[in-house]
C-alpha cells in the first residue's frame, strides 16, 4: 500500500511538470473553448486540490475520464485493452519461463560443451537485440517472405495471429531466464549437499531435479515478479508493431498527448501488478525455501 501511494504521488506530479497539456494541439483551440474545457475537467483548481481529488477517486475505483478519448473513462479503456495484453503476456510468460529454464538447465548440465555455448550465444543475442528489431524481422520472414502467418492484428485471437507477437515478446525474457538458470544451476550443482546426494547413490534425475533444480529455482522465482508485470501489462513496442489493441499503446499515446488521467491509470495498473505479483512471489518463495518461513 505505501508503495502504491508513493507511485501514484510521484507520477502524478511528474507528468504535470512535463511541458504542454492535454489540450495543446498543433492548431491551438480558441481561448474561450480552452477555458471551458479546463474548467470542465477541473484543471483550474490548485494542483494540491487536484491531487487530493484524484487520490479520493482512485481510492473509490474511479480513474477519471480520458482527456483525449473523450467518450470513454480511463477505466473503460483499461477494461477494453487489458484482456488482450493479459492473454498475450501470459503466453509470452509461459514460453519465457519454460523455454528459458529448460535451456538454462541443459546448458548448465553440459557446462562448457557445444550445447552450452549454443544456448548462451542465442541468449546473448536475445538479451542484446531489442524487440523492435526482433518483431519486424519475425514479421518479415514468416509473414511477408514465407506468408505462413499474418503480419499483425489480433484477428480471431487464434494461435496464427498470436504466435509471432508471443515469440517477439518472450524472447528477451527467455534469454534472461536462460542465463539466470544456467548460473544458479551451476552454483547449485557445486553445493555440498549435491555431493552428498551422489555419494548416496541417488539417480541422476533425483540429483538434478529434486536437489539441484529446486535450489536453483530460488533466484529465478525472484525475477519472476518484475518480469511477469512487464509482460502482462503490455509491451508498447510489440503491440505497436503487431497492431495489438493492448494497454501498452494507451500508455504511450497517453504520455504523448499529456492525457494525465490515462497515463496515471496505466501507471497505477502496472504498480498494482508489480505489488501483487511480488506478494505472490514472496509466498511462492516461502513455499520453496523453508529457511525463510519462520524468520
Amino acid at each position: 500500500m505505501p508503495t502504491l501511494f508513493a507511485v501514484v504521488t510521484i507520477s502524478f506530479f511528474l507528468i504535470r511538470f512535463a511541458p504542454g497539456g492535454p489540450f495543446s494541439l498543433e492548431r491551438p483551440l480558441p481561448p474561450q473553448i480552452m477555458e471551458n474545457m479546463i474548467r470542465a475537467y477541473r484543471l483550474d483548481l490548485p494542483l494540491w486540490r487536484q491531487y487530493l481529488d484524484y487520490l479520493w477517486n482512485v481510492a473509490h475505483g474511479d480513474f477519471g475520464p480520458s482527456y483525449i478519448y473523450r467518450d470513454f473513462s480511463v477505466g473503460q479503456l483499461m477494461m477494453q485493452s487489458l484482456p488482450y495484453s493479459l492473454q498475450l503476456g501470459t503466453y509470452a510468460l509461459i514460453l519465457a519461463v519454460l523455454g528459458g529454464v529448460a535451456a538454462g538447465v541443459v546448458a548448465a548440465l553440459r557446462q562448457n560443451g557445444i550445447v552450452d555455448y549454443l544456448v548462451m550465444s542465442v541468449a546473448t543475442v536475445g538479451v542484446t537485440v531489442p524487440n523492435f528489431v526482433v518483431g519486424p524481422v519475425l514479421s518479415l520472414v514468416f509473414a511477408v517472405l514465407l506468408s505462413w502467418l499474418p503480419a499483425g492484428g489480433w484477428g480471431d485471437g487464434s494461435a496464427r495471429f498470436l504466435l509471432l507477437p508471443t515469440i517477439a515478446l518472450a524472447l528477451p525474457q527467455l534469454a534472461v531466464f536462460a542465463r539466470l538458470t544456467r548460473g544458479s544451476m551451476i552454483e547449485a550443482l557445486r553445493a555440498d549437499h549435491i555431493r552428498t546426494a551422489r555419494a548416496y547413490g541417488l539417480s541422476r534425475r533425483a540429483v538434478v531435479v529434486t536437489h539441484a533444480m529446486r535450489g536453483a529455482l530460488l533466484p529465478i522465482v525472484s525475477y519472476l515478479a518484475p518480469c511477469a508485470a512487464a509482460l502482462l501489462t503490455g509491451s508498447v513496442v510489440i503491440e505497436e508493431i503487431f497492431g495489438i489493441p493492448g494497454v501498452g499503446r494507451y500508455f504511450v499515446q497517453g504520455a504523448l498527448n499529456r492525457d494525465y488521467t490515462l497515463v496515471m491509470g496505466t501507471v497505477v495498473l502496472i504498480a498494482v501488478f508489480i505489488v501483487v505479483l511480488n506478494l505472490v512471489v514472496d509466498i511462492l518463495y516461502a513455499q520453496l525455501d523453508p529457511r525463510i518461513r519462520h524468520d
Binding site: 549437499h193 547413490g201 536437489h211 535450489g215
Partner: peptide, 20 residues
Amino acid sequence: FRGAKITMIFQEPMTSLDPL
C-alpha cells in the same frame, strides 16, 4: 554400492544436507 554398502559422512555438517 554408494549409499548402501559404502557410505560417507563429510566435514561440513552445515551444508552437506539439502536445506530445502
